[in-house]
Amino acid sequence: MTTVKDLPREDYFLSGHTACPGCGGAMVVREVMKVLGPNTVVYMPASCLLIFSDMYPYNAFKVPSLQILFETSAIAAAGVKRALKRLGKDDTTVVAFAGDGGTADIGMQALSGAAERNEDILYVCYDNEAYMNTGIQRSGTTPFGAWTTTTPLGSTSEGQGKNEFKKDVPRILMAHDVPYVATASLGFPADFLKKVDKAKAKKGFRYLHVLAPCPVGWRAESDSTVDLAKLAVETGIFTLLEYEDGVLTLNREPRFTPVREYLKLQGRFKHLSEGQIASIERWVKDKWERDRALAKALGPKPKVPVAIVR
């Protein structure tokens, strides 16, 4: 079930949710839920997703869902899973859908703890690269140079967009040596679905980081979501990778389309200077050198069996 054509007709994330037109996050959740199916419990932190799918009395999921707090996605999902195990429902998938702020910033402690304990959950970060729910404030995964409402434009060095580069959350998760870490982009459906399939099938902590363009926050057209997701990969800005049982694979060698092609579609980058664009180009180059070296170092190798008893 790794192609679009094989996906079930049935939706478990339903119409009538109130996401903005063209929302990448809503697409991610809809597709992941198609693959996970009915035997699933969903956790949502405070996020765009919560507001557009779980504003009382309406709810967009066909399966049970839980919401408690913002920074608790990984731990709440883990708590649910442990309880389900006690109730004899170990076969139920527990998935947490969290945004980048809830993952890379405020949720990092609980995420790291759950990963280290190898809690049996699937954690999906839909990365729209800022705190979109609260109105486009910068997060740890906001890219360098991007305008946000807390990195506004002005004449000083504090007015050039975000001054730091994107936090590499998947690499942090790799450092926890969990069974599965993968990145995915809406622009590459086959790759994306294959990874959801794998993540569903595995036991233990699984982390999926999906780039989910936000037309509103990125100041882009509402029909550009998929194009942006594709270009992010083809420019080399967003790397498709998979870290599975200790082996790192780079899934797609990009065309290295000039980053300008990607940046120009987004109002959040409209102000970038030539120097800033050059910095992004250099960052892409360095990142690929590093990731290739990592993939080489973490390539296939003879397996040492490790017993995990729970």
Partner: peptide
């Protein structure tokens, strides 16, 4: 299935 915890 049940919604447990919601925004309201």
């Amino acid at each position: 299935p049940m919604v447990v915890g919601a925004a309201a």
